[in-house]
Structure formats: C-alpha cells, structure tokens
Nucleic acid binder design. Structure first.
Lengths: 206, 206
DNA sequence: GCGCAAATCTAAACGCCGTCAAGATGATCT
DNA sequence: AGATCATCTTGACGGCGTTTAGATTTGCGC
C-alpha cells in the first residue's frame, strides 16, 4: 500500500512484474536481504501474498529478475569506467575499482546477484558480450602489448575477477578500517590492495 | 531422533551444545544450508524445538559456533599444507590451493563461515595467531627475500586472501568445467588461475 | 455491444519456521 | 530429604512460502 501507484493501467494492476521487482529492490535497499520476503514484496506493491505467483513461478524466480537487473547495471558501471579512462594503462585498475565500488554501493543487490548464481552453479549473465566478464577480458587484451594466448587471457581474466569479487566481499569488514584511514579513504585502500596483487603474485611464484 | 545417542549422561541430555553443533554440521553436509533450520537441528539431536535456547541465545549464535569450528579446521588444513611443503617457493601457492580445496570440500560450512562474518562485518577468528590470515601473512613474509614493509605485507596478504576467497566462491561454477577438463583436473585449473594472478596484476599495472 | 475464455487478483488454508512463556523433570547441594 | 537451579517439553504466536478455490477484470470473436 505504501508504494502502489494504483493507476488504472491495462490489466488489474498494470505491470505487476515490474512493480514487484521495484518493490523488491526498494526493500533490499531499505531493510537488507534478510527482510526480503515474498510477502513483504507483495505488501510493498499493494497486492495479496499470492499475486506474485501469476508472474513468477516462485520466490527464486523473482530474485533472479532482481539479480538480472543488477548484472545489467554492473555492466553499465564497468563500461562507463572503461570509457572514462583515457590512459590505457589505468583502464584495468579503474575497472577493478568500479567493480568493487558497485558492490560497496549496492551491497544487498550484489549479494542477491551472487546468491542466485550459486544456486545455479553458474554466472548466467555476464558472460554474454558486453557482460562484466567480457569487459574485463577485453580490457586485459587491449592492455597487453603482445597478443595473449586465448587460454592465458581467460585464466588471467578469471584471476582478476576472483580478486575483484573477493575484495568486494571483504571491503566492508571492520578490520580494514585502520588501513583505510591510514591510506586516506576507501578508494585509496582499494587501489592499494589491487596494486599489491602483483606483489602477492610475485612472492607466490618464485 | 535419528542420531540422538541418548545415553544417560550427566545432565538430561549430556552435552547438548556439542550435539546440536554436530547435528547442524550433519544437516549442512547432507542437505545443504537451505535445510539448516533450528527446528531441524533439534529434531536431528532428538530434542524439542525449544531446547536449543538453553544453550544458544538464538539461531545465529548456534551458527556462529558452527562457523568457529569451520575456521579452526581451515587453520588446521592450512598449517598442514604449509608444513608439508619442503621447497619454500611452493609454499604460498600450496597454501592457496589448500584454502580453495577446503572451500570446495566443505561448501556449506564455508558459506556459513562467511555468512556469519558478514553479519558482523568482521572476520572474527582467523586474525588471531595461527589463524588463516596470519598463516598467509607469515608465509608471505617467509618467502620474501628482502624484508617487506609492514604495510606492504598486510596489503599483499589482503590481496592474496581476496583472490583465494573469490576463487573459492567461483570454483564450482559450470562455466569453468571446460577449462578444468583441458587443464587436467580441478586442482590444475586452480593452480593455473593462481599463476595467472601475476599476469593479471602485471597488465593491471603498466 | 456481448458473451466467453483467459488472465489476473483475493481469501483462506497448510505446514514450516524462529521464538517465547509456563510448567514438568531431573541433577546438585546442604 | 528438601530446596534450588539448570535443563527440557508443551503449547502458543506471528511470519514465511506456497497451493487451491473462487472472485474479478480484461480482451477477443461474433
């Protein structure tokens, strides 16, 4: 009832699928993932608890729709970051920063995105062209002076993706508050960690 | 009722806290995190749904006990991997492999461990001496020829930790099945990704 | 325009969940 | 032995995901 635009749209509610996804995202932002029940979403959209079942076969399917929107928006954030970087040398690190910042600014959405992926043991969306994975891979390929073997390119992309995701999940932990302060802010901390990936990798190799 | 050793131990049940944690872990392994309800745990332990409340203040506190056991076992797995590696040069990568293998072999437990951490915005256990974080840091320090500045050491540890955690969360995804096959198994894939961390970092810097 | 079928929504119910209050049961201590 | 306290059970509450049956509205063919 709180939102419930409730004009007299084509069908009973108009576009309830859309309204449900919006309601879910609102609850997600306001009260976090724990509060995201199907009944709460229906309540927020001003319909009965059973109404969503005419648009999504179950709660998971609604969450998938939310997650899909998340991936689309992440793709957008990454391509913006890529386009905004003139010097090619900084493109990769800026991409990483943009990725983690997206997760930091949309923590609940980011959680839903990966929860859905885990349930299906697959990353459904970002592998298509323009998807986040491909953007990392393409940026990596651009930045390499000598052309990379396809296998190396894929493995390096995965390595970078994992590092980004790991950092995205850790960025909020209190233990890092001290480092963030010393380094002068969250983004500086973030860049520092990305830079030290190289140091870690070096010591892990020799 | 299924497990319920049900001897006549000191108190009514004996050591119900222990039995509840065991029951929780059994459910976790058998049916996954989604099936882990407090009522199911009580059922498995052969007690009423309200019994756990005399030992844990709520469900989260029981999960924390489970998570704590997980961290202890992870610490053990890491120190074993460290001790089993003769050549110091391989110690770091073997540590990474051991970390991800632990997550792969105990996926539900690993999930609970990080879910609990996220709820508190902190990694509670592995920062103490002998904890997983410290093991990574110490291995890194050992392996470095020249002594590292403390800040660099910490940042490199965090970078490695993030990469390991990211990979641990991704390792099960179907998209990687092809690469695993080509590379000759999961562990080979895993080592390959770790190796390419260096390549990623290099291109991300220059 | 009208009737009908399909699409959409509501109401009510089911079994499960986390949690709490009250009472029963058993152990411990003097 | 009796008091006390920790422990466990019973029963209840509200909320959850989901299903079924029935009401309402819509769009299409006539």
């Amino acid at each position: 009832m709180t939102t419930a635009t409730a004009e007299s749209r084509p069908y009973h509610h108009g576009d309830l699928s859309r309204a449900l996804v919006d309601a879910a995202r609102k609850i997600l932002e306001t009260d976090g993932p724990a509060a995201l029940s199907l009944r709460a979403v229906a309540r927020e959209a001003g319909v009965s608890p059973a109404a969503p079942y005419h648009h999504f076969k179950d709660k998971a399917e609604l969450l998938e729709a939310v997650a899909h929107e998340g991936w689309v928006e992440l793709d957008l954030a990454l391509s913006k970051a890529r386009a905004a970087t003139e010097t090619p040398g900084e493109r990769m690190s800026n991409l990483g920063v943009a990725y983690v910042c997206f997760a930091r600014d949309n923590p609940a959405l980011y959680r839903v995105m990966y929860d859905c992926s885990r349930d299906k043991d697959a990353l459904p969306d970002q592998l298509k062209e323009g998807g986040a994975y491909c953007q990392v891979r393409d940026t990596l390929a651009e930045q390499s002076k000598t052309p990379l073997a396809e296998m190396d390119l894929e493995l390096a992309t995965i390595a970078g993706w994992c590092a980004g995701h790991g950092l995205a999940e850790m960025i909020g932990f209190k233990q890092f508050a001290h480092l963030k302060e010393v380094l002068g802010g969250e983004e500086a901390f973030l860049r520092a960690v990305f830079q030290h990936l190289g140091m870690f990798a070096k010591f892990a190799e020799d």
